[in-house]
Design a protein around this nucleic acid. Sequence first.
DNA 1: AGATAATCGAGACGGTACGTCCAGTCTTCCA
DNA 2: TGGAAGACTGGACGTACCGTCTCGATTATCT
Lengths: 206, 206, 206, 206
Amino acid sequence: MGESSTSSSRRRTTGTGPRAAERIHEATLELLIERGYQKLTVEAVAERAGVNKTTIYRWWPSKGPLLRAALLRSRVLDIDIPDTGNLRGDLIALAGQMARLVNGERTGPVARAMLSGGAQDELALLTRDFFADRLEQERPLFARAVARGELGADTDPALLVDLIAGAVWMRILLRQLPAEDGFVEAVVDAVLPPVGVPLASVEGPR
Amino acid sequence: MGESSTSSSRRRTTGTGPRAAERIHEATLELLIERGYQKLTVEAVAERAGVNKTTIYRWWPSKGPLLRAALLRSRVLDIDIPDTGNLRGDLIALAGQMARLVNGERTGPVARAMLSGGAQDELALLTRDFFADRLEQERPLFARAVARGELGADTDPALLVDLIAGAVWMRILLRQLPAEDGFVEAVVDAVLPPVGVPLASVEGPR
Amino acid sequence: MGESSTSSSRRRTTGTGPRAAERIHEATLELLIERGYQKLTVEAVAERAGVNKTTIYRWWPSKGPLLRAALLRSRVLDIDIPDTGNLRGDLIALAGQMARLVNGERTGPVARAMLSGGAQDELALLTRDFFADRLEQERPLFARAVARGELGADTDPALLVDLIAGAVWMRILLRQLPAEDGFVEAVVDAVLPPVGVPLASVEGPR
Amino acid sequence: MGESSTSSSRRRTTGTGPRAAERIHEATLELLIERGYQKLTVEAVAERAGVNKTTIYRWWPSKGPLLRAALLRSRVLDIDIPDTGNLRGDLIALAGQMARLVNGERTGPVARAMLSGGAQDELALLTRDFFADRLEQERPLFARAVARGELGADTDPALLVDLIAGAVWMRILLRQLPAEDGFVEAVVDAVLPPVGVPLASVEGPR
DNA sequence: AGATAATCGAGACGGTACGTCCAGTCTTCCA
DNA sequence: TGGAAGACTGGACGTACCGTCTCGATTATCT
C-alpha cells in the first residue's frame, strides 16, 4: 500500500535483496532438491540463477542464510491448520501434513536439510523458528479442543506436538521406514486415547 | 573365535583395518566433538592421528563410513536397557538416557551428526542401524511389560519408542529447547496414560 | 580566466573534475605512499575520499590517469633548477634532488610508481612527460654552462642527464643500495671531469 | 654424480619443483611477454601449462617468485662478458647487450617486469640479485682494464656500470625514446673520455 | 633367517568450492 | 539534467579439502 502511494516505479528492491532474488531462490531450492543440503553449493546456485557468485555473497553470508531466505520466500514450509471439528481429526490431519512434508518429493529434501544443518549449522535458526512458528499457528487448534472439552486446560500443546511430529520425523527420516497406512492415526491415538474408551489392549493395571 | 584358533596373536590386523585404527578412531571422535560433522575432515583426522591421509582412504571410502566405524568401536552409542520392575520406570529410564545422549558434551555431537548426515548421507546406514539395534535391544523390556500385563500383547513397541525418542530429539535438537525437569516423565506419561483414566479427565500435573 | 568571465560561480566543476577532486587526489597520494602503486586501488581511493567509486571512474578512466592527475596537482614532482654559478655545482644539486626524490618518504613511492607503471602501463605517459619536462627545464642550466665555456656547444644535455639520473635511479631503486656520502659527487664527476684537472685517481692513461 | 650412482631411475624431482615445472616456466614467460607483468596471472599460467592452479601454489607463493624461478631457469637474463681487448670495446659491447635486453621482443617485457615489480614487489629480490650478479660477472672485465692500465686501480666498477646501465634503461624504458645509432657509444664515451682529452674539448661526434 | 605379502608414508596431483577483492559497467535516484 | 550512489558482472585471488596415484620403505608372517 504505502509503498506505491507516491509513484508506481518506486524502489522495490532496496534493502530487500538482489534484483535476481527470485531466480536465486528458485535455483537454490531446485538444487537443494536435486543434490541435498550438503552438496548444495553457492557456486552452483549462482550459475543456475545466471548470476555472479559475488552477487549472492553480497546479500547472504553463506549457504545457510541463503537457503533460509529461499525457504521463507517459498511456501514449502507453510502449514495449513485444519479444523475438522474434533481434536483427533485435527491432529490426524496435522500429522498427515507432516508425513507428507517429510516424504514429499519437493519437501522431503527440505526436511532433510533441516536435519542436516538444523542441529548446529547456519540453518539452526531456521529450524528452530520453523518449529516455533508452527507451534504458534497450532495453538488455536488446541484452544478449540479445550473449549470443546476434549482437552484439559492445562495440557501442554507443545508436548503433544513434539510427540506427534517427533514420531513422524523419527520414523521416516531417521529410521528410514515407510509410513504405512494407519501410521499417523496410530501416532495420534497413542497420545490421544479416545475419550472414555480405554485402549482395548490396556486392560491390566499400569 | 575362529580367528584365534591357531595362535593367540595371529593376524589381528589383516583385513580388519589399519594398524593405527585406534588412534584414527579417537581422532575422528575428538574432531567430531570439536567441530561437528560438517567440519569434520579426513585430512584433519589423518593429521591428528599421525597417519597419512592415504592410509585412511585405503580403509574407508569417505568420512561417513569412517565415522561409522569410529562410533561402532567406541561405546558412545551403547544403551543400557533398564529393568526397574515396571514399564513406566523402564521408559522413563530409557527416555532419560536418550535425553542424556542428545545433550551430553561428548554424545551430543554424535547425535547431531546422525541428524546431519543421517537423513541422506553416508551416515544414513549408521543412523538406521542405530535405531534398529536399539529397538531390538529394547524388545525384551516390552516383552516383560506384556508379561506383567502392563501392555497389550498387540502393542507395537516401535510406535512407543518412536513417540518417546522422537519427542526427545525433536525438543532438544530441532526445537533447541532445554529439557526441563519433568520433561521425560511428561513424555512417558503422555504415551502411557494412567490406567483406566481417560485422557480428557487427566487434569492433574502431568 | 575565460572560465570565470561571466559569473564567478559559473560551472567551476564542469569538465574540470568531480566536486571532491581535492579529497580524491589526497587520498590517491596517501594510498600510493602507504601501499605502493600495485596495491593502490580505485576502490580504496574512493572509500578514503568518501566518494563513490563511480565518481572516480567518471572522471578518470583508470588508476594510471588518476594518479597522474593527483601527481600533477601536487607538487611532489616539481624540480628546482639550481644556479650555483658553475656546471658542476648545478649538476650536483640536480643529482642531489634526484636522490632525494627517489629516497624520500613521500616521494620515493612516487618514483617507484613511475617504475612500476611507467614502463608499460597507463602511467607511461606520466613518466615520459615527467622526464621530458625535467629536461626542458634543465636546458637553461646547460645553456649557461655553454655560455660560460664549461661545455661544448654541441654537447647533448639529454645524455648527461640520462647518465646522472640513470645512475641515481639504478643505484637506489633497482640495485636497492643506499646512496652513500659522495655518491652524487662521484656520479657528476664521472660524467664531467673537472676541466684541466684530472681526477686525482685517474692517473694512468685512459 | 652421486645422484645416479645407485640406480638410473633415482628420483629426479624431489625438492626441485612440480613435475611440469618446465611447462609452467615456459607458460609464465610466454604470458609475461604477451601481457606484461601486471596482467600476468597465476590462473592463466596454470591453464596454459595444462596444470591445476593448486599445483602452482604448492610450489610458489605468488606471481613474483614464480616469475623469478621462470626467469632464472630460462637464459634470458644471462649476459655474455665481452673481451675485446680494450675497455671501450668491452663497455660498448656491454651497453649494446643492455640495450638489446631492454629492447628485445622477448627480453624487453622481462626488463619491464623488473621495473614493474622490482622496486617494491615480490620481484625486488630478483632485480637486486640480477644487477648484483651482473656486476660480479663484470668485475673481471674491469680487472683486465686495470691490468692494461686503462683504468685506475681505485676506480669503482659499480659506478661505471650504474652510469652506463642507468643511462640505457632510463633512455629506453623511462624516457621511452629509441636508442639511435651511436647511443651506446656516446654513453660509453661520456663516462670514459678519450685519453688525455678534457671533456670540454671533445667536440667530435659523440 | 630370508622370502613374501600386506601395509604404510611421502609426495604429488587434478579438481571443486570456498569466500574475497577489485575492475569496470549499468541503472537509478536526487538535487 | 548531470552527478552521485548502488547494484551488478566478471576475473582472479589464495586456500582448504577432496579423492587418487606412484613409489619406495616397513612390518609381519611363512617356510
